[in-house]
Design a protein around this nucleic acid. Structure first.
Lengths: 207, 207, 207, 207
DNA sequence: AATGAATGAGCGTTCATTCAT
DNA sequence: TATGAATGAACGCTCATTCAT
């Protein structure tokens, strides 16, 4: 009984070691330019070894890709706009979401890089990306719908479009974090601005 | 003297013929999956011929890519927020920009597709994309800066961040137009919502 | 003293277990398409284990192959044309040989399949096949030589050639038994016809 | 008009050059042990070149294989037992068939070698072999049926079985020709014996 | 100018075998 | 004794690019 557990555990350890170096190489060179040989040699292992743990190159990539999607989605579905009783609380929910997202970013900058850069490298990756995007859209739609019910969102706003635009801003904020530093790519500043735009728009209020 | 001119002109005609079919194939299959042979055979020409007009596959792609960027940038630099005298005119400038952008889209859906999907297919493409994005950012910064000077933009807004977020929304609106139709991917609806968010935010105004 | 015996016995039991499943897999997939992993997994053992009992894949195959040859040869050497006193008894010897061969077939269809199909899969197998064929030829030559001495075989017949042709018919009859059923592949009918051709030829006798 | 013809002709010349060396290598090393690289290097060409003329390794092999089948079948269908008016003429038809077959053999010993040795190297080859065998059987059945109608074949003989056994002898005679010389592998002697067995059987006629 | 035949580096992947545990 | 993780040589094949015609 103990034995298979150890074996399975060791297998998992090795899988994760492969994922770790694969992520590094994918982030450095991109999906297409990365060869199994690159991953194997950085792992200081034979390239046959990798095929003991993953079906093929795509399998490795999708594993990395989907685990990131899962983390993002967990944060997104974890927001609780339903608990917000006031306008300020509603904004605070959004704020918390941005903070949580940022934390994943800080931890997972390489995975975020491949998340954005390799969307179209393979039809399977694209499918995975699109499935995740659709689900993200659902979470944002939920956020807005609850907000409207509670009177925190202007009722005349078209929710699906708004959700899509907000997601575009959120993901671009993440993407900014993967870029070499510049004034415009400060992730926190972008998040603050995003919330400000959401709350008040860009134009002064007419009296 | 006449001869070389004709020759150069003919050369240009052929170049454009190649670009035309290359665009089709790139849009259908993507950069990596497209072979020179695919382009040549659809052109009904030998593949050696293509190398007389372009250095290599990347050269063809970048030519297409950069001409699209140039068109987009021409529209962006052509906006005249400086001529807006009223809040409504300022919004109208933005509206016109969206309309003009949409028109490029309607005409150039294939180029827009490759614009979005092949950003990271090659480091050169990426560089080109990033250069264009930086310039787009400049046009939006100009738009916002002029708006602020004229009192149409809230002075406390951080302009570079706002510009980046607006661009994210604009490009995502374009991208939506390349996707199979769905409620959320209506390009005009997205543009209208974008302007609405810009003008008023998503939340009701406090009295 | 007892111990090594038991060990050797156990070793033999395991060897036979390996041969049993190996035969199944070889028959199903063929020599080249069969991997050590296929055999090991059907055996529910590690693939390293197999190398404790056999030198390599070829060793397993040849063991199976040669044991079948040995069985066939035992039957062939077991014919007793020397005991035949009459033409009818001589034919009966041949008949018995066909029946005995068929029984091996009924029992060992899988080994017969690999016997025919994998002759050239490896030079070693080929060598084994050819050695067996040469020995089969000897048995048939013996059968015919004795027959001639006893006046049951036409003296003008070239015995080595006749032996070879008869063997060709015998093995093709066996091979027919491994094929999906059809009118022409009825093993008993073929054997009967073979004997009939041997005894009387295909043409009517001239008066 | 002249141009494409020349081009197609050159293409054919090259195809045949490839087939020529491929046949040599296949005959020497066998299908599985032959690599595209082996063929290419003997051709003194890059291995990519081969893929301009053939889809893959199997394509080359099947081309060789099927052209041999076609030659054999042409000979088989070219026999004219229907023209035989006497027993001797009927035997002469068979004799001619053997001679013609032998001539292909003398010309095509390498193709005959692969014909026999690589039957099961790939399912496609096997399919091709079996289709050819079935057609050969038809030609022999035709030969025997016409013989029976004309009174040259004993009416009680089971024709499909007889046809199958005769084919086994014919092909084994061919196979003998591919083997290192021995008393039993004299192709003409085998053919003569085959006809003798066909005509008179192996046993003395009862008075 | 136009061609397309030739090239070969490079890819992802398989699997028989070894050997430390 | 039994294991299965590790290995890496070797495979078939693709395709961007060159260059002789």
């Amino acid at each position: 009984m103990a034995r298979p557990e150890v074996s399975a555990e060791q297998k998992q350890v090795k899988r994760e070691a492969i994922l770790k170096v694969a992520l590094e190489v994918f982030a450095e060179k991109g999906y297409h330019a990365t060869g199994i040989a690159d991953i194997a040699s950085r792992l200081e292992a034979g390239h046959g070894t990798i095929y003991r743990y993953f079906k093929n190159k795509l399998d490795i990539f999708l594993t990395l890709y989907e685990s990131l999607n899962a983390e993002f989605l967990a944060v997104a579905w974890g927001t609780r706009p339903d608990l917000a009783e006031t306008r300020e609380e509603y904004i605070a929910v959004m704020h918390k979401f941005c903070i949580d997202f940022s934390q994943i970013f800080l931890r997972e900058i390489n995975r975020i890089r491949i998340f954005f850069e390799e969307v179209y490298a393979d039809p399977e990756i694209r499918k995975s990306f699109e499935a995740a995007q659709a689900e993200f859209l659902d979470t944002t739609i939920r956020f807005l719908t609850i907000g409207r019910e509670k009177g925190f969102v202007r009722p005349e706003l078209h929710i699906p479009s708004t959700a899509r635009l907000m997601n575009a801003m959120v993901f671009d904020t993440m993407r900014a974090g993967t870029e070499p530093e510049s004034a415009s790519s400060n992730i926190l500043l972008l998040a603050t601005t995003l919330i400000d735009l959401f709350a008040r728009g860009a134009m002064p209020q007419l009296k």
